[in-house]
């Protein structure tokens, strides 16, 4: 495997549980050194895909290769180089944080070189038995377990789940630092603001199918601008809806709210025919784009892509 080759290659991956098709032939590539977001609503197939990458469950058909190694056949070699954070971090209550760290470090067969940094950064308590830990504290232990042996690639399932906003920010900063150190990070999430802050590309999965794979920057461009206009004269919603690039028009407190895709120039020229008392434009939240992928039937979305 060369440094140019994708780190994760998933080809035509299917997973069925009896008659239920959890994942329906997805394909994607994750490049070396990128933070890749894997988005989708609950039950879309994110965790199923991740657990197949780790050989905890087996694909019905298709191939999953990580670091050039087959996820099933070469799992021992592969698992030496992977850090994994499960979606729901549950730990044995009778053990202390220190014991669980020792346990998984031994299973990894490596000393936890990043342990002290991680404990300090995330303010992790490891002396008490784990049964008294809150969801957030367990999540912090999960993060420590995933990163402590300094793996080449991180597979993180809902990594910021249960973390408070301050820790979410710390975690996002940490991810970006790890990326600078050359790590490849594959993370599933449905917290879109997190994905927006750290990921270079995202794949959106819905009902077991990839809806789109796109660079976050391009999605941001697609989201366009969120515009608020207040007029001095009478303007109908219908007229506004027909202006260039305008969509999702609503009115609230004498002001009109709408999205604008593409250039603002044509819109401003169209608006100039009226008396404009107030005009406000800001980047539309990326969340709206993601929600479109979640909600619109696949036949009506943009062409599903793979890279």
């Amino acid at each position: 495997m060369t440094t140019q080759d994708p780190v994760i290659v998933i080809d035509n991956f299917h997973k069925s549980y009896g008659k239920i098709q959890a994942v329906k032939g997805i394909s994607m590539r994750v490049e070396r050194g990128e933070i890749f977001g894997f988005l989708g609503p609950n039950g879309a197939g994110k965790t199923t895909t991740i657990r197949c990458m780790l050989d905890v469950i087996r694909p019905t058909s298709g191939t999953l290769r990580v670091l050039g190694l087959d996820a099933q056949r070469d799992k021992m070699e592969l698992h030496r180089r992977i850090g994994y954070l499960p979606g729901d971090v549950r730990l044995p209550g009778q053990m202390t944080g220190k014991q669980i760290i020792n346990y998984f470090s031994r299973l990894q067969g490596l000393k936890p070189v990043l342990l002290n940094d991680l404990l300090a950064r995330f303010d992790v308590e490891i002396k008490r038995p784990l049964k008294g830990y809150s969801k957030g504290m367990r999540q912090k232990i999960g993060i420590v377990l995933a990163f402590m042996c300094d793996p080449e690639i991180l597979i993180l399932d809902e990594p910021t789940s249960g973390l408070d906003p301050l820790l979410q920010r710390t975690f996002n900063e940490f991810l970006l630092q790890e990326q600078q150190r050359g790590k490849t990070i594959f993370m599933s999430s449905h917290i879109m603001s997190d994905v927006e802050k750290v990921c270079q590309r995202v794949a959106v999965i819905r009902q077991g199918e990839i809806v789109t794979i796109e660079e976050v920057e391009k999605l941001r461009q697609k989201a366009g601008q969120r515009v608020v206009v207040e007029f001095g004269d009478s303007v109908s919603i219908d007229e506004l809806s027909h202006m260039p690039g305008v969509s999702n028009v609503t009115s609230h407190n004498h002001a009109y709210h709408f999205n604008v895709g593409g250039s603002m120039d044509a819109l401003i020229k169209a608006l100039s025919r009226h008396e404009v008392l107030r005009l406000q434009a800001e980047e539309a939240p990326l969340e709206e784009v993601f929600l479109q992928f979640y909600e619109i039937p696949q036949a009506e979305t943009s062409t599903p892509g793979t890279r």
């Binding site: 994994y84 499960p86 209550g93």
Partner: peptide, 14 residues
């Protein structure tokens, strides 16, 4: 039940 099997089998343990 205690959630450690996924974490354990994601290590180089057959």
């Amino acid at each position: 039940e205690n959630g450690t099997i996924d974490l354990a089998l994601s290590r180089p343990i057959s």
